[in-house]
Design a binder for these strands. Sequence first.
RNA 1: GCGCUCGUAGCUCAGUGGAUAGAGUGUCUCACUCCGAAUGAGAAGGCCGCGAGUUCGAUCCUCGCCGGGCGCACCA
Length: 575
Amino acid sequence: MVDFKDIIANEIYDEALGLTLEEIRNLIEIPADEKMGDYAFPCFRLAKALRKAPQMIAADIAARVSGNEAFAKVENVNAYVNFFIDRAFFAGQVVTEVADKGAAYGRSDEGKGRKVIVEYSSPNIAKPFHIGHIRSTVIGNALYKLYDAVGFDVVRINHLGDYGTQFGKMIVAYRKWGSEEELAKDPIKTLLKYYTRFHKEAKEDPSLEDEARETFVRLEAGEPEEVELWKKFRELSLTEFNRVYDMLGITFDSYAGESFYSDKMPRFIQELKDKGLLIQSQGAQIVDLEEYGMSPAMITKSDGSSLYVTRDIAAAVYRKEHYDFYKCIYVVASQQNLHFKQWKKVLELMGYEWQKDCIHVPFGLVSLSDGDDIKMMSTREGTVVFLEDVLNTAVEKTAEIMREKQTQGVDIDTVSKEVGIGAVIFQELSNNRIKDYVFSWDKVLNFDGETGPYVQYTHARASSVLRNASEADLAAIRGGNFDWSYLESDSAYALVKLLYRVPEVVLEAADKYEPSILTRHLVDIAQSFNKFYHDEHILVDDENEKLAKLALVSASRTVIANCLGLLGIKAPERM
RNA sequence: GCGCUCGUAGCUCAGUGGAUAGAGUGUCUCACUCCGAAUGAGAAGGCCGCGAGUUCGAUCCUCGCCGGGCGCACCA
């Protein structure tokens, strides 16, 4: 498709300006106000070199470039050269491009098949899957889809938190107060009960903590009794997690969690020793990072058992050797910024240059409102909102709305899931991932305005218009060429521009590890479509006008469906 | 105390080294004999936390302060 910035840069370029083609291209901007054109070139930067007022330069350039078929008008306003695209030409380009590419519109091959690992979700086994876990899960899934869309070969890893002292605690608690029947009935909630009780009682009796650590040492040493219990907890948990993953439509290529690396650690502990990085301190073994302004990275505890960093080092090297990744993306909470900094530094000190290809993608905290108080969710305290409850409630509310509206021709059961769960996912992907937020039922159950259901509704509405068109019309708009001057109105044109930008927005979202960039753009498209829909009648009598407009509706529908797909959200035809 | 991070409309949040800082929500209006009103239009609402600096130009970059969040060795 045409690249207007390239065209403009080529038109403007002149040796006398003292800027390279690339520099000129980068200066081109999209004006905030549409009245100022579709693209603008500010001339301030040229003033010094040319020793001329920027306004004069702009006037010169505007006079020099003109006559390209892509532009309806080129003019200067003060220090800016403003370019107005030829609307009909542009609409034709975009609409036919979308029609040609269909589901592939927005995708590209920038990645050239290189391998990217995305590690995400990674819940702790034996703990509930709560609303806080949605972030890594949903952001990670969107990043997987985005990287896949821009041409990378993506491996999805669920790095389960299935190891560590917490399992010592769990085993101790189960042995003291557990019952098999209770566990079978509702595994996670029961395990959570034991875990909560453990922490309550450990406050009174600190020896429980020691007992838990010893138990973990035995687990890591492969003692059959401990291993068997651990396996049981792991299996029960996975069954429950998979139920949530199914609802969200998420799958993984690997569930190699922390335990997977337990037998791979000794090699690295030895390597750290050999490289003179490991020092003894208070009975533990650490890598001193003081000169880098960080607290030490603890590699083994005084009882000899491993820690988080130890396992992450093993995991990183394993992945490099096993997958030979181009990039390894860790979608993990910002609370662990320090951990990742330490871990990267240790890898660097070990001489693994590829650590620079390991990228921590952090996200903010989800907290709960408790009256006037805002507090962190705590598994230990038992103050959590279960993700499954949130999803189910959203689905129920959707079904209720659909019954009220008496939506025809759909299976409420199926569509309410697509819309309800889509609403929760969309909400999660709406804001910058780094922002903290307070969970709110009102917010997650609001389906008006900039929400998932709004975008899905727009898709359903476009689908409905196309259903109302005749078979002959639909056949005609598949790749047809029409009188695009019917798409020169402000609202049609605004929509065309947004559709045009989708491929670059997808790339940017992947580049910045920020799905919300796409979510926001999708909202803009939906708003723009709805405005177009209100401003203009689509199924008009004039055949040429109708076909041009239908082609735009069809393109919009395709793009909305594609973008929703990249976010991991369904696009129902009716709702 | 140190490090990281956030601070933009009543609330939730976009935004960019450039032209008059934008949405949604809430409040008040208006629009369904018309392709889906989970919609659209309008009104109202802003020392872009504060103070310096860099720049032709700063809400954006730098430094300092203030306020919130997170983290800082035997948890993950």
